[in-house]
Amino acid sequence: MSTVLASARRIVVKVGSSLVTNEGRGVDAEAIGNWSRQLAALARDGREVVMVSSGAIAEGMKRLGWTTRPKELNELQAAAAVGQMGLAQMYETRLSEQGLRSAQVLLTHADLADRERYLNARSTLLTLLALGVVPVINENDTVVTDEIKFGDNDTLGALVANLIEADALVILTDQRGLYSADPRKDPEARFIDVATAGDPALEQMAGGAGSSIGRGGMITKVLAAKRAAGSGASTVIAWGREPDVLLRLARGEAIGSALVAGTPKFAARKQWMIDHLQLRGAVVVDAGAALKLREDGKSLLPIGVVEVQGEFARGDVIAVLAPGGEVIARGLANYSSAEARLISRHASSQIESLLGYAHEPEMIHRTNLVLV
């Protein structure tokens, strides 16, 4: 893993709320200054760096005089709007002191769920990197609704890593890394130096809620590493106040927990399908169709569909469920949910007579389908 990070040319760094705001006391100028200094050194070394930063809500709470995180969405959005001003200003100031230009980028899930907006976001970020600008990314908490939130910035960091096809994701947190159990409760807890991202055992080890300041816990970091691995990015989870942590990681020093990408890299379009956090619908297939998808890599034909769930349009990403309800694949639907209900359990040759037209012979073509 040290070799992977040492050779990484494009790196996404995610920092948590408790680090950015010094446990909620307000934007930590010294900490952001330290990260900015390290980012500048990486940039001089020819690396491309992106910062995904939490802290807007925590900074807004401090500016508004709130001591506990509100539960109402409108109050959270108000805090984010107030705090984002200070957060962006601090990053701009500190990065500028290091001779770096910066750009604020606010994203919502809708920006990445729509294919055109996904490509636009990717193009913008890659252009900023080509110009030597450091993008500072946060979720657009001011306008996002609870139904389409990323959930935490660990997930957002992984999605950004996939979006720009980063080589590595570094998650800086207030913990040393990942343990086999909660070290505060289990004296036998073992520190995880290196593991394979996506290993189910890691999800069992991680657990617990986040701090009172942020929303994520170690489980969100493990799941983020699993998601980032889909595009070939390995992840390091490390203590954010470790001296020169980014520079030492880039030199190949073993710090924190390294979760190595052990899965083959998905094509960009298939990675986009995997990264959908919410789906509009699903189709349930029979055992024969499930077998053909899993073992033979075949397209999904209407005759193999036994049930249509939800409401979706042609071109939407939908889930494919096995008879028992297990999600086995995702793909781009060639037909809407209404059309799918009419043609399910029928041969492809009957589509035109059933609908009066035929877009494609498949419900989902194999080139637009990815197993999960």
Rank of each mutant, 00 (worst) to 15 (best):
102 S>V: 05
102 S>W: 01
102 S>H: 01
103 A>H: 03
104 Q>M: 12
105 V>K: 06
106 L>G: 01
106 L>I: 03
107 L>D: 01
108 T>A: 06
108 T>L: 02
110 A>Y: 02
110 A>E: 08
111 D>S: 05
111 D>Y: 00
113 A>Q: 15
114 D>G: 08
114 D>T: 04
115 R>E: 04
115 R>Q: 05
116 E>T: 13
117 R>E: 10
118 Y>T: 12
118 Y>S: 12
119 L>C: 00
119 L>E: 05
120 N>R: 04
120 N>Y: 00
121 A>P: 06
123 S>E: 07
124 T>G: 00
124 T>S: 13
124 T>C: 11
125 L>S: 13
125 L>W: 12
127 T>G: 13
128 L>A: 11
128 L>P: 15
128 L>H: 12
130 A>Q: 14
130 A>T: 07
131 L>R: 14
132 G>C: 13
132 G>P: 15
133 V>Q: 14
133 V>G: 15
133 V>C: 14
133 V>M: 14
133 V>H: 15
134 V>C: 13
135 P>L: 08
135 P>N: 08
135 P>D: 04
136 V>T: 15
137 I>Q: 00
137 I>H: 00
139 E>N: 02
141 D>P: 07
141 D>Y: 03
141 D>V: 09
141 D>F: 08
141 D>R: 10
142 T>M: 14
142 T>Q: 13
144 V>T: 11
146 D>W: 00
147 E>W: 06
148 I>Q: 02
149 K>E: 15
149 K>C: 14
150 F>N: 02
150 F>L: 10
152 D>N: 08
152 D>I: 01
155 T>H: 09
155 T>F: 05
155 T>P: 02
156 L>C: 05
156 L>G: 09
157 G>W: 02
158 A>V: 08
159 L>W: 07
159 L>M: 15
160 V>I: 12
160 V>L: 08
162 N>P: 11
162 N>M: 08
163 L>C: 08
163 L>Y: 05
163 L>F: 05
163 L>M: 06
163 L>A: 09
164 I>N: 05
164 I>S: 06
165 E>R: 12
166 A>E: 03
166 A>N: 04
167 D>H: 04
167 D>C: 06
167 D>F: 09
168 A>V: 13
172 L>Q: 09
175 Q>L: 09
175 Q>G: 07
175 Q>H: 04
176 R>M: 10
177 G>P: 00
178 L>V: 06
180 S>Y: 03
180 S>F: 02
181 A>T: 04
182 D>M: 03
183 P>Q: 09
183 P>A: 12
185 K>M: 13
186 D>H: 10
188 E>K: 11
